[in-house]
Design a protein around this nucleic acid. Structure first.
Lengths: 301, 301
DNA sequence: GCTCATTACGGTACCCGTAAGAATG
DNA sequence: CATTCTTACGGGTACCGTAATGAGC
């Protein structure tokens, strides 16, 4: 009989690199790890881990099995969570991840429409794309709105179903008084000496787009400050202290700023709806409905 | 600690409708069932089964948990199977389900192309759509080619990823000597008294299409014989003993038969590629490649 | 000699069956 | 009273830790 403890043991071995370290990690004795691993190998009839004096490593069979076992384990974790929600709240909770601007622009109307037909409790979780992605994979979120650079292949996990909602090219945001603000199209090279307001994370789509475009134009952008706060960014740009990379829909027209394309390719920000491929039966319908509403709201091509 | 036996117990209760029957089904004593169920309920902190003197029924929480538990269990069954294959065969086996005509028309060239780039062992399984679907859901198949009536929603399980490859309208196949064979378009009403060669299974797409169209035209088709054997069907139709419903690509031109559309709508047979949404990491790439090749081979719109 | 893994041994806990009790129809 | 589920009790298994042995850097 297969045992969930055996999965935890194999997982710990894979993570830590040795049986002894796995034992410490799980607060077990070393022999217990050896015992469970042996039992699992005996059940499957093949070696899962190659032992040595320096540590242990998984065989291909071990990797294969662990991958399935992890999937089963996360599924069970989701089961426990959802049962607890049903017990404590009395209904199904749909957890939707989102990034800041989409949460404000797309979701309010869509959730209002969604609420009409269904009786699920919606819980919104805000976060950056990579964090949301991780939560999707471990079952903390049922679906999410996230963005990335068009052409990114980071979201390719088979356990996730995805759909592109919007594609929006990046722009350069300048103060209205900026010397280049009059130009309809800007040459990035003219901004080689400009001070940039940039994201704090190098993993941000806008950061990667800026570095790629600036690199192609032959310069490394000077940094004025790092910030994720849109009102701050707008204020600095309006004051003509710095420039920034942004998408059109994120421009706040109350500030004295303009957004301009460049002769160079700045890349495209893609907004996607990503959902678990294996939802609960009660949520499958709501998820499909939500996806339809979002597609309608985004006016996808 | 969650236990796989508990899942088997809950599953048996759901299937049989009582703890006692579940005990018989699992070859356990009745108290053992009670014990495991109690342990699971205690772990989850909620009632999963309502007991009575007449039997037992699952609560909503029980249904919810069972659904997840079944998914996890099938995933583990797939894991065991694949590890055994890796052990006995030495590599990954990709099991593809298919129905007869697609197996002959689409797959040979596609599999030849597929073999070039990958090193997986391909295993073909032939069967009718519903059987293939069932095998997909329990993990016996990794993907399948199957057909159904356009508009069917039977294949909507979230655990399956699907893609339509072809749409082909149904035709009436007549002997070349048939009085109506000269008409470009046939009125079904003229065939109200004809003898039909039909499928053995009422679940077949062609059967459902025929019954719907005949019903709309105001008659119930007479049956000459039931058969799935295409050469037999062709021979009888060529001999002008009966007529049959068929799609264009399945017509064997070596027989003296013609295929004609009708003024009534006969429906459309849809060929689909369906794959598990959660493949092994080693198979995800091959599956995607296979899907691309099939789309190319089918010349999908 | 340190860390690594395996083997041996004993205590405890849990699993499972038998037997008896309570409730429903 | 037949069937259902629950509780109680006892035997056996298997889990887990401590201790001791062997292997490699």
């Amino acid at each position: 009989m297969l045992d969930l403890r055996q999965f935890a043991v194999l997982d710990a071995i894979a993570r830590t690199g040795s049986l002894a370290a796995a034992a410490r990690d799980l607060h077990y004795g070393q022999p217990t790890i050896s015992h469970h691993l042996r039992a699992l190998e005996q059940h499957l009839g093949t070696e899962l881990v190659t032992r040595s004096a320096t540590g242990a490593a998984l065989t291909p069979a071990g990797e294969l099995f662990l991958d399935h076992a992890r999937a089963a384990t996360t599924r069970l974790a989701v089961a426990e969570r959802e049962v607890a929600e049903l017990r404590d709240f009395g209904g199904t909770v749909l957890r939707i991840g989102t990034f800041e601007s989409a949460g404000a622009r797309l979701l309010p109307q869509v959730l209002a429409e969604l609420g009409a037909g269904h009786t699920v409790q919606v819980e919104l979780v805000e976060g950056e794309p990579l964090g949301l992605l991780e939560q999707l994979l471990d079952g903390s979120l049922h679906c999410a709105l996230l963005y990335d650079l068009d052409g990114d292949t980071s979201v390719t996990d088979a356990a996730l179903r995805q759909r592109t909602l919007e594609r929006e090219p990046f722009r350069i945001m300048l103060g209205a008084e900026h010397p280049l603000a009059g130009n309809e199209v800007i040459d990035l090279a003219d901004l080689a000496d400009a001070d940039w307001i940039r994201s704090r994370s190098v993993l941000e789509a806008s950061e990667r787009a800026l570095l790629a475009a600036a690199g192609a134009a032959g310069f490394v952008p000077n940094t004025l400050l790092h910030s994720e706060d849109y009102s701050l960014v707008h204020a600095f740009v309006a004051a003509n202290v710095g420039v920034a990379l942004i998408v059109e829909s994120a421009v706040d027209t109350r500030y004295r700023v303009v957004a301009r394309p460049t002769v160079q390719d700045l890349g495209v920000r893609r907004v996607r709806f990503v959902a678990t491929a294996t939802p609960s039966p009660g949520q499958a319908g709501v998820l499909a409905h939500l996806e339809d509403l979002l597609i309608g709201a985004a006016g996808v091509e």
